[in-house]
Amino acid sequence: MKNAAGKDMFSKLVYERPKTLLDRRLHYCPGCHHGTIHKIIAETIDELGQRENTVGIAPVGCAVLLYDYMDLDILEAPHGRAPALATGIRRALPDRVVFTYQGDGDLASIGMSEIIHAANRGENITVVFVNNTTYGMTGGQMAPTTMLGQKTTTSPYGRDFRTEGYPIRMAELLAGLEGVAYSARVTVSSPAHIRKAKEAVRKGFEMQLKGMRMGLSIIEILSTCPTNWGMKPLDAQKRVLGEMADYFPLGVFKEKKQADFE
């Protein structure tokens, strides 16, 4: 039944696609977390009213097509270099919101130098770090975050600390740098966790808004890669909340307050 204005009288809009997210079919595998993570970033940008003021950086990896999914200006980065690109954008356009979207091979392996120095300089950027313990796009090779004993295509007998070292905890490592304003580790493996992840992403973006600008923020998101893990989607969720969260504890490792600067 419609009212005089032609509106449906008995329905109320409770949910809609964020404007920042384009109405496109995602190419990600079943059980992959990229879609959910894209959505919470898009919601955050909408809620902060920053869609027209944001430049994003797409990584090398499965999420390289970020520009096909988000209605934002987006620059494509060489593997690992996103924090350097973000530095170059943010310095040229100091009033824009700039974020990078990076995987574990990208950020913690080839791009370790760029992330550490951008963090140490306190660049006013937000880093969304998707940690799924493997290189997804290239076919499931070992990453710096691969768990001990985890079999990958380049650690076919399981990661061995005697030859490959240990999985690296980036959120804690970066929290130790003075230039970092916010560092948290979250996951999106359940609705409750998605809400917490969204809060963290929002905090991360707020840190670089006018009046804040307290330094780099990083949100590490423990994620799945069912295809390369050889797991069903549900089993992959369980792995994130079990084995992975045991080694990579969830939580906030650093949060600067405005008062710290006054």
Binding site: V55, A84, G88
Partner: peptide, 20 residues
């Protein structure tokens, strides 16, 4: 002016600035 951590970072900072 920014002294980058390496020439790899340098060229990528330039890429960022040039893109604007």
């Amino acid at each position: 002016f920014l002294q980058a951590e390496s020439e790899v970072a340098t060229i990528n900072m330039m890429l960022g600035t040039a893109s604007t």
